[in-house]
Write a protein that binds this DNA or RNA. Structure first.
Lengths: 197, 197
DNA sequence: GTCTATAGCAAGATAGAC
DNA sequence: GTCTATCTTGCTATAGAC
């Protein structure tokens, strides 16, 4: 029996998650204290702990949110008109991240944490699985329209290609977060040329 | 004026760095305490702090060492007989990492730390710059032997391709460290097919 | 549900003997 | 140069009032 309306509860959760994302992005997960998130959200310790039982739990909510949105982008793209080529599919996801204002450094921190924290790893694996399906669906649509590009069969080709497309996307994130003179459009353009098109 | 021989000093430093790498890899940089590294190295607090002034400094030594070795692999490959194709160049670097027993999770943690720690970021940028040159040299050799694959000119093609090749490598590291059912040989094989060959 | 105050703990780094 | 002992700081999470 919730003592406040679901809507109000969800709004509070969103308020806290968004505050956490801002602080995590600038200071990093590990270097962010609960006190900072609490201050950014404009709430009190007790209030925040009423919604999230630990810093880890909060981070995992951030991960779920981000992965869910990317998945939605891909499904929208798969449902739209002309099927995008592999490089364009990649562009959709990456640009979705960027245009939503997600600091890509946050993703690197998320991955780093997952290497060490089994809970986090599980959250990411579940999310990646869904994302991989969405990538597969999007690529399959394109290869069905261009069967000459898949001499070994569409299913085999798609299954083979998906990890590399995702890998190029992960490379984008790594370089974008880490390299001073990284050139995002040039990277994506080169990915487009390299992947089947 | 060193009070012990340079050789002995270097050996101690290596001993400490190697112990740190082992602990960082299994527990993660952030979750590793100096006490653990010190125990793993079989030394005392004072001894370790005599060689590295902070945990961060130690981590930065780990980064320098790892990047330096990869660079050496690539230079060796570039100097060897038949120039390897882009996908093979990638394989050389990745397999170098793996066969040296480097836990790839360590690299993700390294990147995560670099997003937040300017000193670390600088170390990595310097290393990546060197590594990028080595990649460029290796790819250039191959395109010089296969100019038909570079219709826009070798220099342009190489410069365009290097970030994506590195990106695919970074994707390998991310997926390898994070995804439960990742298949490394299949990934590398697919990369070989996707890149010019 | 939200607040303030603080318990309780872990960890990085230092001091000083040998 | 290396050791042991410990100081100091900063943080997560809880307790209890409103």
């Amino acid at each position: 029996m919730p003592k406040i309306s679901d809507a109000r509860r969800d709004a509070r959760r969103a308020q806290i998650v968004e505050a956490a994302m801002r602080v995590f992005a600038t200071k990093g997960y590990q270097h962010t204290s609960m006190a900072e998130i609490i201050a950014e959200a404009g709430l009190s310790t007790g209030a925040v702990y009423g919604y999230f039982e630990s810093k880890r739990d909060l981070f995992s909510a951030v991960a779920r949110r981000t992965l869910g949105r990317r998945n939605a982008d891909l499904e929208a793209a798969a449902a739209a008109g002309r099927p995008p080529a592999p490089g364009e599919v990649l562009g959709i996801v990456v640009n979705g991240l960027v245009s939503e204002g997600i600091d890509l450094r946050l993703l690197l921190q998320l991955w780093g944490e997952a290497t060490v924290n089994p809970d986090m790893r599980e959250v990411l694996n579940a999310g990646v699985k869904v994302l991989r399906e969405a990538f597969s669906a999007a690529l399959r649509r394109w290869f069905e329209a261009h069967p000459d590009q898949a001499p070994d069969g569409i299913d085999v080709t798609v299954e083979r290609l998906v990890p590399v497309v995702m890998g190029i996307g992960q490379g984008f994130i790594v370089q974008s977060a880490m390299i001073d003179d990284f050139d995002p459009p040039a990277y994506l353009e080169s990915a487009r040329r390299t992947l089947p098109h």
